[in-house]
Computed example of a mutant assay.
Amino acid sequence: MMQINETSSGVLVLTLTAKRIDAASAVHFKDDFREATAAHSGRVVMDLGSVTFMDSSGLGAMVAALKAMGGRKLELCKMTAAVDKVFRLTRMDKVFLLHADVEHALSFNDSKDVDAA
């Protein structure tokens, strides 16, 4: 469900390979996320470019992932139009850091505008 890469600067990049995050896959997603980030204390960027559908269970799984970060931000990027719409309608776009793509996320610093998606 996710590919894991760590950059030379210590940023963990999780690339979701699932097309859907819904009731059927939410528990698996949360387990994979916890396992991938358990030993990592730095930044985490999640590439959602493959996800074409997310329902309320999927959104709940994303919030659970954020909570598992222990106060750190979970940065999301490459959201498809359908997923972006879910985040904006539920105002979760104000909770997560959103980036247009992985490159933008990796070049991000706190003085820049994050909502470039």
Rank of each mutant, 00 (worst) to 15 (best):
V63Q: 02
G60P: 04
L16D: 11
V95Y: 05
V13T: 01
I4Q: 14
V83E: 02
N5H: 13
R91I: 06
M1T: 12
V45M: 12
D93Q: 06
T17V: 10
S57W: 01
T7A: 03
V44K: 09
V102I: 12
L14V: 01
L12V: 07
L74T: 00
L59A: 12
N109M: 04
S8G: 04
V102D: 05
A81E: 12
D32T: 06
I21P: 00
S9F: 02
G10T: 13
D110P: 07
A61V: 07
D31M: 01
V102M: 10
A116F: 02
D115I: 02
S50V: 06
H99Y: 05
M54V: 05
A68V: 02
V114G: 08
D55N: 06
K78E: 11
M2H: 03
Q3I: 03
A39S: 15
D115N: 15
Q3E: 13
E75S: 13
T80K: 14
S111V: 09
L89Y: 12
D113G: 08
A18V: 01
L66K: 14
D55G: 10
T37M: 07
C77K: 05
S50N: 15
A36I: 01
S111I: 08
M69I: 02
H28D: 12
K85V: 02
S8Y: 13
A61G: 06
S57T: 09
I21A: 02
A116M: 15
A82E: 13
M69S: 11
K30F: 02
L98Y: 01
C77T: 05
E35T: 13
M2Y: 07
S25F: 00
T17D: 14
G70P: 09
L76P: 03
D55K: 04
A82N: 14
L59I: 11
M79W: 08
V86H: 08
D93H: 11
G58A: 04
S50Q: 15
A18K: 10
L12C: 00
T52D: 14
H104L: 09
I21T: 01
V27G: 00
T80Q: 15
V44G: 08
T80G: 05
T37F: 00
R20M: 00
L16M: 13
R88Y: 06
L48S: 03
L59P: 06
D84A: 04
A38Q: 15
L74F: 00
G70M: 12
F33D: 02
V86G: 10
D32K: 04
A68R: 12
D22T: 10
A68P: 00
V114N: 13
M69E: 15
M92N: 06
A81R: 14
L106W: 00
G60C: 09
G42K: 11
D110M: 11
K78N: 11
F33P: 08
L74E: 01
S57K: 08
A117Y: 07
A39P: 06
N109K: 10
T90Q: 11
D84F: 09
M62K: 06
L76K: 02
T37D: 01
L98M: 14
H99D: 03
S9H: 14
